[in-house]
């Protein structure tokens, strides 16, 4: 049941990325070259809904609909966060791909992106050599 709920949430997420054209590396790259600021609207819309959910749901429900507890996002600030983000930024600027958009890009039939996905798996594997 939980997997189904998460899979169906992924359906909305992926459809949203396709609708907003974030599955097209060209559109993301045109944002990064500041030719079309649409990505900020996508992120703003998503943050707005997520913020409402994270704030409101734990107040109006004792626990999630399928049980368990409401998790809260927490990360500590260390140099890994910043260094990793900078490396991710170079890759994002080179390819126009981030993880969610790359997965959505597979769904819209953009078969060359499979090469980008292969790169992401290889990069994720390489990072496991640097585990803390």
């Amino acid at each position: 049941m939980r997997s189904l709920a998460i899979y169906s949430g992924g359906l909305f997420f992926g459809a949203g990325l396709a609708l907003s054209a974030m599955a097209k590396p060209e559109v993301v790259l045109s944002f990064l070259q500041l030719k079309d600021l649409g990505l900020l609207l996508v992120m703003g819309g998503a943050v707005l809904i997520a913020m409402i959910a994270y704030k409101a749901l734990p107040r109006i429900m004792r626990r999630p609909a399928l049980g368990g507890k409401f998790n809260h996002y927490s990360r500590s600030l260390d140099k890994r966060v910043v260094l990793g983000a900078a490396i991710f930024g170079i890759g994002w600027g080179v390819s126009g791909l981030c993880p969610g958009a790359a997965l959505a890009s597979v769904g819209v039939g953009n078969y060359p992106v499979l090469l980008g996905i292969a790169g992401m798996f290889a990069g994720a594997y390489a990072a496991s050599f640097l585990s803390d």
């Binding site: 949203g16 396709a18 974030m22 707005l48 959910a53």
Partner: peptide, 26 residues
């Protein structure tokens, strides 16, 4: 399409939180 797509992405995140309490990133 940017605004509607972004709201739909956010809805997916909210949907997962509603059912499971998981804060989902890709």
């Amino acid at each position: 399409h940017y605004i509607l797509g972004g709201l739909l992405v956010g809805f997916g995140v909210a949907w997962i939180y509603f059912w499971t309490g998981i804060v989902a990133g890709a």
